[in-house]
Write a protein that binds this DNA or RNA. Sequence first.
DNA 1: GACTATTTGTTCGTATGTATC
DNA 2: CGATACATACGAACAAATAGT
Lengths: 230, 230
Amino acid sequence: MANVQNLSKTRYVRVADQIESMIMRGEWQPGQRLPTLEELATMFAVSRAVVREACSVLVGAGLIEVRHGDGIYVKSFSLDSFLRPIHAAILLAASDARALLEVGMWLEGGIVEQATQRRRRQDCEFLSETLFMMEASREDAGRMMECERQFHVTLSECAGNEVAVNLLRILYQPLTGVMNLLLMDEDFRDEMITLHRALYDSIAVQDGESAKRHIQLYRRRAMDAMRNAK
Amino acid sequence: MANVQNLSKTRYVRVADQIESMIMRGEWQPGQRLPTLEELATMFAVSRAVVREACSVLVGAGLIEVRHGDGIYVKSFSLDSFLRPIHAAILLAASDARALLEVGMWLEGGIVEQATQRRRRQDCEFLSETLFMMEASREDAGRMMECERQFHVTLSECAGNEVAVNLLRILYQPLTGVMNLLLMDEDFRDEMITLHRALYDSIAVQDGESAKRHIQLYRRRAMDAMRNAK
DNA sequence: GACTATTTGTTCGTATGTATC
DNA sequence: CGATACATACGAACAAATAGT
């Protein structure tokens, strides 16, 4: 394969791209140590400073880890390594937030339908505990948000669909910012608890239609609240 | 606020953190230009090189954009920042075709509902054309697959939800292999055309319920066919 | 625990490429 | 076109952290 490089990009970005694709191709395995900056500089025929900047880009992307006095290591792959803290929450445009909430709503509609059928008793117990915690943290918006997230992630795990679990976790990243905003309102917190309690009951008695209705009601409510807040 | 910084971190990471939090706090708005490297260096009392590396980290994180000969800009949030982790999420579970099809089904359930309401006449015309092409390529599984993909992507565009469009595009990549397998069967191809025709008609007359029923029927049919094929 | 080699972190000066007016 | 402002790249030097002896 010819090493075609876009010359419009700057040097350190090109080097970052090259290192990234080498990692992706598996030439350097996760956990493994990369050559030293010196060696990389020679390898790519650039100065050490350029390699350092390229590495900094990859650090920001969560692909590698640079340890002072030690070396450069490929981060092990997990979904978490891609879930870099999304700063988007605040920068999120209103239209994008709507799109995210909407997709989350559609996704969860299917998730709860499956979850009501596949849930085990132990799942219900765990969901119930989470619900209790949610009700207990009625005064603490932050903890409540965490309970809410926990509840929905657990729910997605019940559905037995790995792709859905991963997607939901990603969608939650930028949404937490939006939700935190909404949870400032005490009435919204109360409403949220009520809806989750109803949702849980539907799942417990395995009424898929009812569960789906409640989850959609909840998400739609959040979308409305967001629209008014902005 | 006291400038409490974790001294275990290196300088450029600390600077990156500081710049990030300033952006988060809205001191620099999306699209706005940051001070020059020189000024940032003075501001944080570090050398230019350190600021440059800090910026490289933020470039990797997709938070800022550095334009040669121009300046440093806060990226207005683009949905692209999601595509990377979402891509990873799908790839991590790509071997599970059932999970992919299921998520696709849930997603498209919402998409068609929106699409029936928001579609314009020109959208219908384009969908109709694609449908004709699909019917014309009854003998060619490859071309048919492409028509099918085109049809569904167009549909998602009608829904006016960019997240959904991107998500569907990504989902289709690992699915093409599976679908190609199913399309080897002539009966399945015929059935597919019939279902798409019915789906199109529902959208044309803006019957959301009917459209949703048909898309779910189609995806469920594909899931069944896949199960039998294995 | 101390010493040493290795490796990354930080700084500065200088030259060059690029965008804007 | 020229002038200016700015980011990019290089090399050399020293500081600081780490791992191994």
